[in-house]
């Protein structure tokens, strides 16, 4: 019973990944061909042909997500601090949920007019701005769980032991915040990496991130390049996470690896399905 459950679960989780990998290496895939289909790496080779839209799309996605993650981290770190120690902190903080909970595609449609008017649509910068609308508030949500009374106490303690503000920041604040910062960075990266709705609406198809381009291939009923796009979306992130996970576990005790994740997951949901 237990074993059956386990394998069902494993299958449920693995099937989609295996499916996209499989689709990315077959061609002329007519029903009912399965393992007797034609296997080749030709859909990948296109990536290196120089003129490949997909390769450019990958680069653009990476750039966009890195920029968004960095912005999210900086904004989240400093704004969360002010909010955490403000009189209306918790009430203000809840405002961050609003832009985050509206479906991006609807938010984008409602804002399209302004973006067009101000010449922001169809540009990398415009998409950046559009994603900022919900990524920045979200970053504040995550980082605010770091800025507790406890952290403030530790900070003062550091000072009373003789460190000036700069030293205490370097020796206490940043090392303590590191796991949260890493989490904020990673989450913002992923939200941007996954985003489709607002990027499509306000990018008018010109800003071709991986999710936009894989949807385009999908609409052409061209599953193989779409699968390559999906693999490009999943596998590098998967590898990065495995490496980070290993490194985190080795470099530090359990404290840092677990604390913020438990903390923030229960308060702030990861963006999905929208």
């Amino acid at each position: 019973m237990m074993k059956l459950g386990k394998s069902t679960l494993a299958l449920f989780v693995l099937l989609p990944l295996l499916c996209v990998i499989y689709l990315s290496v077959v061609s002329a895939w007519t029903y009912p061909l399965l393992f007797d289909a034609e296997f080749s790496l030709k859909h990948y080779l296109v990536l290196f042909s120089g003129e490949s839209e997909l390769a450019w799309s990958f680069v653009q996605s990476v750039l966009l997500s890195l920029v968004m993650a960095t912005l999210g981290l900086l904004f989240g770190f400093f704004v969360a601090k002010e909010i955490a120690f403000s009189k209306y902190g918790s009430r203000l903080l809840k405002l961050a949920f609003y832009p985050y909970m509206i479906a991006p595609v609807v938010l984008g449609s409602m804002l399209q007019f302004y973006f067009v008017r101000w010449g922001l649509s169809a540009s990398f910068f415009g998409v950046m701005l559009a994603q900022s609308l919900f990524i920045l508030p979200y970053a504040v949500l995550i980082m605010s769980s770091f800025w507790s009374e406890n952290i403030l106490q530790l900070f003062k303690l550091g000072q009373s032991l003789g460190g000036d503000a700069k030293t205490v920041k370097r020796t206490l604040l940043y090392p303590l915040a590191k796991p949260w910062m890493l989490l904020t960075f990673a989450q913002c990266f992923l939200i941007s990496w996954f985003e489709y709705g607002i990027t499509q609406v306000l990018g008018i198809g010109k800003v071709k991130t991986l999710s936009v381009i894989s949807m385009q291939f999908l609409k052409e009923a061209n599953p193989h390049p779409a699968a390559v796009a999906a693999v490009l979306m999943i596998v590098p992130v998967l590898l990065t996470f495995i490496i980070l996970y290993r490194w985190q576990n080795k470099a530090q005790g359990n404290w840092s690896a677990i604390a913020p994740i438990n903390n923030s997951l229960s308060h702030h949901p990861k963006k999905v399905g929208a």
């Binding site: 106490q153 303690l157 009373s160 003789g162």
Partner: peptide, 17 residues
């Protein structure tokens, strides 16, 4: 940081990292 006065509370606040 220039006072040389250390405050210790009920909870021993050690630097967790």
């Amino acid at each position: 940081h220039q006072r040389g006065i250390v405050y210790m509370s009920q909870e021993a606040l050690l630097f967790p990292h």
